[in-house]
Amino acid sequence: MKVYEIDGKIYRLPNELTDFQLQMYIHLINWKWAHLTQESGYFNHSPYDALLPDELKSQGYPLYRPIKERFLDHQQRFPFKSHKFFGHMASSQAACANLFLPLLEDPLIAAKVLGAVKTDLKSIATDHLDRGFRIEFWDEPDNVLNDHTNVSGTDADIAIAYYDHESNLNLWMIEHKLTEVEFTTCGGFKSLGRTPFHACAPASAILDNKNLCYYHSKCKFRYWDITVQATSPFDADRIREYVECPFKGGMNQLWRNLLLATSIETSPSPKWPYKKVYFSVVYHPRNDSLQPSINEFQKLIGYNDRFFAFSSEKLINRAKEINDPALSEWVRWYQELYYF
């Protein structure tokens, strides 16, 4: 923990923060102090001002109050785990729900707002998933990537089923980032079980012998099998250009999520009737730390249309144009909490 004194106020924060994270944490804490409580939460017996006390965490904060019951009902009917730090003001899981669930309360409004980003979206497919969406979505129970356990696995923060302008049923998987400086990196590279045999360089060697990847040979994950399939959006020749595995760093999470999207789109199972499956990243407009990985990933996949990234501000700006009292109140609340 590190103690900061800013504008005469004392803030107890994590030790290592980027400039954006520091600004965001200060803003979120000030909002918490003004609207919820000045009491801190605790982690490892130390107080942190961005954490909520247990009493407020048990009440579902920092969820937007009008969506709390919808969130809990969805979680009960389609079980998923709340993140360890859901009761953190900078919780990305809570922020994801706060961004999308107020829109999805009204499918007509959702289509108008989301269509500003997903331009082929005509209407929300309320006859699929849970009235058109799922939180922490993956291809349960198929587990085509073979990486899901009780504690880990590839999923999307939210998935939205929709009909396009040709009446095709599609799926849009979205990863939400708030203050994160990078996407999840390769756990295999960091694993204590990794041996010198598990070479992460050059990338061409892994393509020629997938067993060099710890995830493939030890964990039996199917990432590389799907990567080299004919239906894959990944070009093996582009991968070969990398001196070391391109998926060792931040592109690892993007790789896995796009593989999940590809697997669902090409699945013959009637459980996944989607003609096209897309994967996106939505990020805070001031968080530019993720851009290098996003740009490199788009280059790697040849700017394939199955992946794109956008700022949450695009949705907020579109919502402002719609004359609806409940929507306007949510926009005011969301901007006050997350923007500065």
Rank of each mutant, 00 (worst) to 15 (best):
Y283E: 09
Q76W: 06
K84G: 12
G188K: 14
A95I: 09
A161N: 06
P62N: 02
A97D: 01
L258W: 06
D54R: 01
D54M: 00
N143P: 02
M89H: 10
R12W: 14
A97N: 03
T227W: 03
S311F: 04
A161S: 05
T231Y: 09
Y11F: 15
F197I: 09
K220S: 11
P141M: 03
D324C: 10
K190T: 15
D324P: 00
L129M: 13
K248D: 10
M173D: 01
L300A: 13
S46Q: 14
N170Q: 03
T184P: 00
A90E: 02
A94Q: 07
Q38N: 02
Y11H: 12
H74K: 06
P202C: 02
L254D: 12
T195S: 10
N168I: 07
E166K: 01
S123T: 14
P53W: 04
P196Q: 13
W255Y: 12
V281P: 07
T227D: 02
D225P: 08
L28S: 08
K84W: 09
E336I: 02
E55P: 00
E313F: 10
D155T: 10
A161L: 05
Q21Y: 12
I322D: 05
Y242A: 11
I294P: 08
A230K: 15
D155Y: 09
K275T: 12
T179I: 08
V144D: 06
F234T: 15
H88D: 11
Q59T: 08
W31K: 10
F80D: 12
Y64G: 01
A201P: 03
S232Y: 05
A319H: 04
F247L: 05
K112A: 05
A116S: 13
E265Q: 14
E296L: 11
Q76M: 07
S123K: 06
V282Q: 10
D235N: 15
I294H: 01
R222K: 14
I6D: 04
P66H: 12
E321Q: 10
L104W: 03
L13H: 00
L13M: 10
V151S: 12
K276C: 10
V117P: 01
A236Y: 06
E180T: 12
S328L: 04
S293R: 13
K9S: 13
I160M: 11
V281N: 09
I135H: 14
N317P: 12
P202N: 05
L259W: 00
A203Y: 01
S267D: 15
F189S: 13
C219M: 15
A203T: 04
P107H: 04
N317R: 15
I301G: 15
P53M: 03
H35A: 07
R134H: 15
T18F: 03
L129F: 09
Y163D: 07
V151R: 06
D147K: 04
K112I: 03
L258V: 04
H35T: 05
D237K: 15
N211P: 08
K112N: 07
N323C: 02
L207W: 01
T184A: 13
N150M: 05
F197A: 12
R222F: 11
Y283T: 09
A236C: 13
N170W: 04
